[in-house]
Design a protein around this nucleic acid. Structure first.
Length: 568
RNA sequence: UCGGGGGUCGUUCAACGGUAGGACAACGGACUUUGAAUCCGUGAAUCGGGGUUCGAAUCCCUGCCCCCGAGCCA
């Protein structure tokens, strides 16, 4: 796609770009950047930004850079840059050779700072962090000027060079911009540009002991790269005047910062701090736990890049703070997987069924469509024999109204196979638990339809006991029980809202034999159950599946209605 | 309340002075060898109060509510 569809309304950012193109503000050029800090894993919120930045670039024949905002060595690690690159690529975007790091610009940033000192717009301040805070004033009162504010250019130059040379301890001095201590915007009250940090940087090692702050580094990095539209989230609106100030004072190329609302999703958290807590305190099994909203988690869960991109397209871009329902995300995986996931039969909670009138040693190979949504996918053979497994949930000894699955005396269709009628229920003598069903089949119904045309409402999935493969099936659900995890009692925090049933591991699943060679990452629809994918923990002979998302379940709704009717 | 942003169906995005529309969700129906998918249909919103105008979600005034900002984080 190289053009923008005129029929669909443009979001305010694209509208701005169209206008800038018309006025030739940047000479008809569009360049964006995705600027993650490598201090955590990417999540679905970042996907929104990635889709926006790369999407906009693609649509307007521009380019989008991947730039790591690695200005704080104490928090950043190489592990994160690798995962971020992998995730952006997986999502389907390409930065070609434009992989940049803010740390690549440290020398130039240092030079820019020297320039600012020379024109009297920056000074070395010896105040402690606490003192600087005290001098900053408050939201309603102006700040007071630092006693070091009037240092001479020469002294500032000397001190700044010595900061770089490592003569001073962490926190003993900073370089500040000389702006306006009375500005109503606190960020303009002589913000810190460089701080002393004797820390090893993941890329520059020990070359530097002073590091630039975000506000100073970001705009200049954009400028150096020739970014036209610097898209960021709403909380940076207050930073824009500062972004502009540095660029104006230095009289360098000046991109424009535009802010949009970050993504919030119900039933999950999207803050690095909270996600890190879940990982570090063991509430989940790592950044790629399938319950995590991280891209690595979603990938392991079975989400497709297409589903995530479609989701990001649909939620749009605006300035309103909003919380998107997670149902919308789930809708897009279902939509995508419905079209492409092969259908397969898997019994999650097996209940043994013996077809009494089916010959002992007979095995039939029956045809099964691979995907009714895509005729091109053809069909496969599945074995049918005397002893089968069906889903325990599909049998009820005393069925409620509207139940058309298995029950004593009831006839149902086994998908792709035969009609069977339940004739006897075997129970455990002690517990009363149903342990086996005996049924008869109608040989006339092979393939799943009867010559007499009689109607059977229920169609069940099944596997042949002798041929089925064992599988572990991990049923994942929403990580948080509450739509808003932060909605907690006084004193509690978001982990109090963790969904205790966010994962349910079933060890005794039985799947059809065609799944024997299923490899990690492969996605299937388990008929009537949901979409599943093979987990990396899986191996031949020890299959492990993750539930990506269940199928929509209107029986569950009916059941709720029935229960309500009975006052249950 | 000092500054900056924002308030449209349950949710989200649109409508840019001219019939408030889409998607998800909900509800009802059709179809169905997945109680899936698909198809059809229904209900559902302009924060309040003034004003300008033939006509206001849109422009003006005013009030209310929400978010962001006092890191040597980004």
């Amino acid at each position: 796609m190289t053009t923008t569809d005129n029929d669909t309304p443009l979001d305010f950012i694209r509208a701005t770009i169209v206008k800038d193109l018309e006025t030739s503000k940047y000479g008809g050029k569009v360049q964006t950047r995705f600027p993650p800090e490598p201090n955590g894993y990417l999540h679905i919120g970042h996907a929104k930004s990635i889709c926006l930045n790369f999407g906009v670039a693609n649509e307007f024949n521009g380019v989008c850079n991947l730039r790591f905002d690695d200005t704080n060595p104490s928090k950043e690690e190489i592990e994160y840059v690798q995962s971020i690159e992998e995730d952006v690529r997986w999502l389907g975007f390409d930065w070609d050779d434009r992989l940049y790091f803010a740390s690549d610009y440290f020398e130039r940033l240092y030079d820019f700072a020297v320039q600012l000192i020379k024109i009297g717009r920056a000074y070395v301040c010896d105040l402690s962090a606490d003192e600087i805070r005290a001098h900053r004033g408050t939201l309603t009162e102006p700040g007071t000027e630092s006693p070091y504010r009037q240092r001479s250019v020469e002294e500032n130059l000397d001190l700044f060079a010595r900061m770089r040379a490592g003569e001073f301890e962490d926190g003993s001095r900073v370089l500040r911009a000389k702006i306006d201590m009375a500005s109503p915007n606190l960020l303009m009250r002589d913000p810190v540009m460089f701080r002393i940090l004797h820390a090893t940087h993941h890329r520059t090692g020990d070359e530097w002991c002073i590091y630039p702050m975000y506000d100073f580094a970001h705009g200049l990095s954009d400028s150096i790269e020739g970014v036209t539209h610097s898209l960021c989230t709403l909380e940076f609106e207050n930073n824009r005047p500062l972004y502009d100030w540095f660029l104006d004072q230095l009289a360098v190329y000046h991109p424009q910062q535009i802010e949009f609302a970050r993504l919030n999703l119900t039933h999950t958290v999207l803050s690095k701090r909270k996600l890190r807590k879940l990982v570090e305190q063991g509430y989940v099994n790592g950044w790629d736990d399938p319950r995590m909203p991280t891209l690595s988690g979603l990938r392991r869960r079975g989400y497709t890049p297409e589903a995530i991109r479609n989701f990001c397209d649909r939620i749009g871009v605006a300035k309103t703070n909003s919380v998107v329902e997670i149902d919308l995300l789930e809708h897009f995986v279902r939509q995508d997987l419905n079209l492409r996931a092969p259908r397969v039969m898997a019994v999650l909670n097996p209940l043994r069924v013996v077809i009494d009138n089916y010959p002992e040693d007979q095995v039939e190979e029956l045809d099964a469509r691979n995907n009714p949504e895509d005729a091109g996918t053809g069909s496969r053979k599945i074995p049918f024999s005397r002893v089968l497994y069906v889903e325990r949930d599909d049998f009820l000894e005393e069925p409620p109204k509207k139940w058309f699955r298995l029950a004593p005396g009831r006839e149902v269709r086994l998908k792709h196979a035969y009609y069977i009628t339940c004739t006897r229920v075997v129970k455990d003598e002690n517990t009363g638990e149903v342990i086996e069903l005996h049924c008869t089949y109608d040989p006339e119904t092979r393939g799943g339809s009867s010559p007499d045309g009689r109607k059977v409402r229920g169609t069940l999935h099944w596997v042949s006991a002798a041929h089925a493969l064992d599988a572990e099936v991990r049923l994942y659900d929403r990580l948080f029980a509450s739509p808003n995890p932060d909605d907690v009692e006084e004193g509690a925090d978001f982990v109090a809202n963790l969904n205790p049933n966010s994962v349910n591991i079933l060890k005794s699943g039985k799947v059809e034999p065609s799944l024997a060679g299923a490899l990690p990452g492969m996605r299937y629809q388990f008929l009537r159950k949901g979409y599943f994918c093979v987990d990396p923990d899986s191996s031949e002979g020890a299959l492990v599946f993750n539930r990506t998302v269940s199928l929509r379940d209107s029986w569950a709704k009916i059941k709720r209605g029935l229960n309500k009717g009975q006052g249950k």
